[in-house]
């Protein structure tokens, strides 16, 4: 006869076992294997015959740091994160404020409409946007021409390709953060605003001194999640530009994919994946640090 505590522990582990086993084998093991792989010269020959695998220390990382293409991919990814991330968060917040405004009628309808792009398939809408961006027949250039704007070769011009991808990505995912912001806004007690109005605070002052500070934790969560997601940009350039023109939309993950799964340089690609991971981790720490300093 086993005691109730031991019984609870055993039952707990039993319920946990399938998930833990799967996560260990298909997540933690690969993470560690990737780290090991990044210190080897695993390539197409090693794929056929593991005898050919050699340990090469930090060579992959050194090679990455000396590769101009890697720095270009890093720069493009940073562009996407630094411009696209804040833009997405700002638009999400703006949309949430509008939907949640006490002036708004039919907010459920607006919320659904604004959210709909989120549930769509990225590849499918990337294909759609490729046609919208067509320099001659695309709807976007036509719309702009009504305002006298000259046609832009959105995806073919090295200077416009990344902004075009950012615009599409923001359209696709701002609705997700909008929902989180709406939840955050609804958690702010209405009496705070009433008191502020009685004291004569205008709309901007209410936003600045009530909404923004009380939205702090939500804001941090949204900013972090968006940043982490944007670092991993892959399908947009894969479908819309294949990394071009002139590598101007080559992202780190796209580079990793090409090196790893097209050329089978898996050691080198693993090193690229780990550099990305390190960057995400560093950027996350930095944001948490800034936030902590800001609130103290």
């Amino acid at each position: 006869m086993i005691g109730p505590e031991r019984h609870a522990a055993l039952s707990g582990w039993a319920f946990l076992a399938p998930a833990l086993l799967l996560i260990a084998v298909f997540f933690f093991l690969p993470v560690m294997a990737a780290l090991a792989l990044s210190f080897t010269d695993f390539d197409i020959y090693a794929l056929g015959d593991l005898q050919r695998l050699r340990f090469i220390g930090f060579d992959n990382y050194l090679q990455l740091l000396q590769s101009p293409l890697f720095w270009i991919a890093l720069g493009n990814t940073a562009y996407f994160v630094v411009v696209g991330g804040p833009l997405s968060v700002a638009i999400s917040l703006g949309a949430a404020l509008l939907v949640n405004s006490r002036l708004t009628h039919g907010s459920a309808w607006f919320r659904t409409a604004l959210f709909l792009p989120v549930v769509t398939t990225l590849v499918a809408v990337a294909v759609v946007w490729r046609y919208l961006y067509h320099p001659r027949y695309g709807l976007l250039n036509y719309g702009l021409s009504l305002f006298g704007v000259e046609p832009i070769d959105w995806l073919g011009d090295p200077n416009w390709a990344m902004p075009a991808i950012i615009l599409m990505a923001v359209w696709k995912n701002f609705g997700f953060n909008m929902i989180i912001f709406i939840a955050g806004l609804q958690n702010i007690p209405p009496p705070l605003y009433e008191a502020a109005r009685i004291d004569g605070a205008n709309a901007w002052q209410q936003f600045r001194y009530i909404t923004l500070p009380l939205l702090g934790p939500t804001f941090l969560f949204v900013a972090l999640m968006t940043m982490i997601g944007y670092f991993q940009v892959f399908a947009e350039p894969y479908v819309m530009t294949q990394g071009g023109p002139a590598n101007r939309t080559m992202s780190v993950v796209l580079l990793m994919y090409e090196e790893g799964f097209r050329w089978w340089n898996m050691g080198y690609a693993s090193a690229a994946a780990f550099v990305l991971f390190a960057l995400i981790l560093a950027a996350t720490m930095l944001q948490l640090q800034l936030r902590r300093r800001g609130s103290s």
Binding site: F26, P30, A33, I228, F231, S270, A273, F274, F277
Partner: peptide
């Protein structure tokens, strides 16, 4: 905490596995 690890890190070894 492991949620910060991007899935792409696992993809190469997962493929081999």
């Amino acid at each position: 905490a492991a949620l910060v690890i991007p899935a792409q890190v696992t993809m190469l070894p997962l493929f081999l596995l």
